[in-house]
């Protein structure tokens, strides 16, 4: 059973060799405050959990080495041992402490990832309506009054508020290096708070299976300083064609498209499913919760 260690460490070695030459793992290489929070939570949980794993592995090795039949005299009769209150209390107590510790972290960080990132509170966020259709992403910038398909330009050092919804199956908006994902659905709007600290190009994708074209349902993200972003907006306004309803309906047809750019947004003629109905959809888990108690 010492083999287990050997196996695991050899796997670790292989993996480090295989990935070591590349960059760091995307999720653990955050470029924004939300992704940073999440990476921190992940690392804390990995270290905490290593304690448990180590404890179990060590105990297991001790038991297996010390109490194997070949090490015992042939006439050894193992004793009858009921549980011990003390030992079992320790086995409950330590996990309870760990769970409480992680719960506190979770509750705090849950709050953080659901609100404007820390240090960005005073600023006016950039609102982007990100909607998916089979198998594309549409990004509407209502204030700038422009719209892009399959690529997303964002300013750094400014809070971002993504309004997510879908013209089709449930999808999940995910930019691993800026922060974790959230669903885009056709009957409500979800809000995802992100921000980028570092200019650069990042991978974004739909993470939730949505049919045939799912694998290629990605988009490019480029974070740039505010002035550069503004310059880009001006450029779009000067060069891009306006987005008409007919054009938008065409874009919604299932299939893959490259990068497209328009002035105007589809929000004017095909508004996001916001408002009272949207609120309403938050309820199911609560209702069922009470129904379960019946």
């Amino acid at each position: 059973m010492k083999w287990n260690w050997a196996i695991l460490s050899s796997i670790f070695t292989i993996i480090t060799v295989l990935t070591g030459c590349n960059n760091k793992l995307m999720v653990l290489d955050p470029k924004g405050p939300q992704a940073q929070t999440q990476a921190d939570v992940i690392m804390i949980s990995i270290w905490t959990m290593s304690i448990i794993v180590a404890a179990v592995f060590i105990l297991l090795v001790i038991m297996l080495v010390k109490y194997r039949a070949s090490k015992q005299p042939a006439d050894y009769e193992p004793p009858h041992i009921e549980g011990s209150k003390l030992v079992e209390s320790i086995c409950i107590g330590i996990p309870v402490i760990i769970v409480i510790f992680l719960s506190v972290i979770t509750i705090q960080s849950n709050e953080q990832v659901e609100t404007t990132p820390k240090g960005y509170e005073g600023q006016k966020p950039l609102v982007v309506y990100a909607s998916s259709s089979d198998w594309k992403w549409h990004f509407s910038y209502p204030e700038e009054n422009i719209e892009t398909v399959n690529y997303l330009y964002i300013p750094t050092d400014r809070p971002l508020e993504f309004k997510l919804y879908s013209y089709g199956p449930i999808t999940s908006f995910w930019i691993p290096q800026l922060g974790g994902q959230k669903y885009a659905m056709s009957d409500m709007v979800n809000t995802l708070h992100l921000a980028a600290d570092v200019p650069g190009e990042y991978m974004g994708r739909n993470a939730n299976f949505s049919g045939k074209g799912f694998a290629e349902n990605t988009f490019d993200v480029k974070a740039m300083p505010q002035d550069e972003f503004e310059k880009w907006v001006e450029e779009v306004k000067a060069t891009a064609k306006p987005l008409t309803q007919e054009k938008f309906d065409e874009l919604l047809d299932p299939g893959h498209l490259g990068r497209l750019t328009y002035t105007g947004t589809h929000l004017d003629f095909s508004p996001a499913p916001e408002g009272e109905n949207g609120e309403h959809h938050m309820m199911p888990s609560h209702t069922e919760h009470s129904a379960m108690a019946e």
Partner: peptide, 14 residues
């Protein structure tokens, strides 16, 4: 029936 009721309460206003 509990599941049906829960679904009913979820969908009643829809």
């Amino acid at each position: 029936f509990g599941t049906l009721f829960a679904s009913y309460f979820t969908l009643v206003d829809r």
